[in-house]
Design a binder for these strands. Structure first.
Lengths: 171, 171
DNA sequence: ACCTTATTGATAATGATTATCAATAGCAAT
DNA sequence: ATTGCTATTGATAATCATTATCAATAAGGT
């Protein structure tokens, strides 16, 4: 077992000091190096990384980390409502910080059914938020359901696939 | 190999005669018994069945069907835009007719993050459709993206899990 | 009834995720 | 700082949904 003594977490101050992250410690959970490292990567990679993507990036600075720890850390972050787990029918999950401290902000996705490309969009986001907020209140009341998060996704065919007549998954 | 000679598809006329289904034959594809059977089950089961759910139901009337055929048929139906493939992070996919001929009609989902229960809702659907239609037009233009379908999902905690303080997946 | 070729289904292979369990390391108390 | 308790980690094996393969079968036009 090799521990890289040069290992240094490039802390993202904003994130690590955030209210959300501070709640980490409050419930008997421990602020371990692997957890900081995973959260740190998530705060930088807005490309809906998979578990493997995250593992590989964390591994650069922290070679002893195991895949299992990444899985478990992500599960925790999802459970705590810090991270959303997406499933775009690729056979593996993707992850994204819900309230990104300095990134895209609130956004949704267009998903190409042919090449599986995922396009972030923020068009029209204000009108949308107005409606969704109203809808959330109503749903919470009608269904006695505490809403934490929502997603809106449009499925279709992107320009590339229309132009090239792409008929297969680009993978 | 046993063929049940009493096998009889309980055809859902409305569905099998629908425009969508008629397009089946137009592209060189064949209208086989397994395909009719799968579509027939989908037209009855609005409970977001998994591949196994569908397989088991089809199997009752058509014992020689293989799981593979169900997978392949569903892929086709998804490709043709008749069926939507959902992934609620359970490790397996769920399927649903997009334009149900006699059922719920257009609806969306509340997903309990604790017990994984899926609640269909139609509240507020008119206001929603108005916004979504406007949004779709704009997105199609801005991103040169042909939209076929959309989903809106709210994640949170259902009443049962709030009341009982359920802390585990009910499974 | 025949022929062409799409479709089927049994089986094996893949690959993401989960289970297991001894070793390790936070962190609270001393 | 050191100790002790226990949450966490990570190597390995196990699980399970989905995909690949390929010979056998059947749809639909002729």
């Amino acid at each position: 077992m090799i521990i890289n003594s040069n290992y240094k977490i490039m802390t993202n101050k904003k994130l690590l000091n955030s209210k959300l992250f501070q709640n980490f410690a409050d419930t008997g959970h421990r602020l371990t190096a692997p957890r900081k490292a995973v959260l740190n990567i998530l705060s930088k990679d807005m490309n809906h990384p998979t578990v493997e993507d995250i593992y590989l990036q964390v591994h650069k600075g922290y070679p002893s980390i195991g895949m299992m720890t990444v899985y478990r850390t992500l599960d925790l972050l999802v459970e705590w409502g810090i991270v959303h787990k997406f499933d775009f029918s690729e056979g593996k999950a993707r992850y994204e910080l819900i309230d990104h401290p300095e990134g895209l902000g609130h956004h949704h996705h267009l998903i190409c059914q042919k090449c599986k490309k995922i396009i972030n969009y923020t068009d029209f986001i204000n009108e949308e938020i107005k409606l969704i907020t109203k809808l959330e209140k109503r749903l919470e009341k009608n269904h006695k359901f505490k809403i934490n998060n929502h997603i809106i996704e449009f499925y279709g065919v992107c320009d590339d696939c229309t132009v090239t007549g792409n008929n297969k998954s680009i993978n």
